[in-house]
Design a binder for these strands. Structure first.
Lengths: 134, 134
DNA sequence: TTGACACTTGAACCGCGGTTCAAGTCAAGT
DNA sequence: ACTTGACTTGAACCGCGGTTCAAGTGTCAA
């Protein structure tokens, strides 16, 4: 049985994080010794698993859903939804990346607002602004 | 001269956002009429420009740096730094994406923690955990 | 003149994922 | 007996990028 300090260290998180997850219902201590939490290896694996899902960008609420799923279809729905968001995000970042790289091509010594490349993009956005009225 | 409502609408942000940017020193009203802010087209362009930089993932502090730069080298340094972070982020998301897609290949009707693919990854992470002690 | 509506301010609040703090308990070693 | 160090709790706080609120002022048309 691992203490909270051990389980946190082996999973690579802070002890405060483990307690926070318990508050959020993601993890429960398997026992108490004089009030102190003790964990099975099983819980350590669960903690690592939470970290994996976080790396994939799932929110703690989503993770709770995955952990609480009794059937594969339940958590796969969450994963698929995230996959879609992830794809959109990657595309967006890719565009931002290419745009920034283009901006670096600006020559001459002037502030950013006077850069020709940026100026054109500003005009483009202003022109299409009325297409998406708030 | 545009009112705050107009400038916000044309830039596609809320009026509260425009005031917030003013507090942060990103934007200044060009005039006041009976206490109300008025803006030149120049400021509208500046507001749009802020949105562009936000799309590229720059923080408001970074954006203040770009706007305050008098020489091209100053803002390019910020852009280059963000470009590096962006590349790392894209790579990370790509890996997460591929991982999630792999997880969807799990067969049979069981909870996520019992999935063989996930279980292997958990073991891998636990095994290498000691390499990065906290 | 009345009503509708946009504007003004500072302060408090939001979600997210935790961290930090104070004040205390408990077990082990010397 | 005393120290050391890890643990306990609830509550408050963090950064970020704003939003919302209350209470008031200004503008414009009928």
């Amino acid at each position: 049985m691992l203490t909270i300090g051990e389980v946190a260290r082996r999973a690579g998180v802070a002890t405060s994080t483990v307690r926070f997850y318990e508050r959020r219902g993601l993890l429960t201590a398997d026992a108490r010794r004089s009030g102190q939490r003790r964990y099975h290896d099983e819980s350590l694996r669960r903690l690592v698993f939470i970290g994996m899902l976080q790396d994939a960008g799932l929110s703690l609420d989503d993770i709770a859903g995955v952990l609480g799923a009794t059937h594969v279809a339940d958590w796969k729905a969450i994963a698929r939804r995230r996959l879609g968001v992830l794809d959109a995000e990657i595309t967006r970042l890719q565009r931002a990346r290419d745009y920034l790289e283009g901006a670096l091509l600006c020559r001459y010594d002037h502030p950013a607002t006077e850069c020709r490349i940026m100026g054109q993009e500003i005009d483009r956005r202003l022109a299409t602004a009325d297409v998406h009225p708030t």
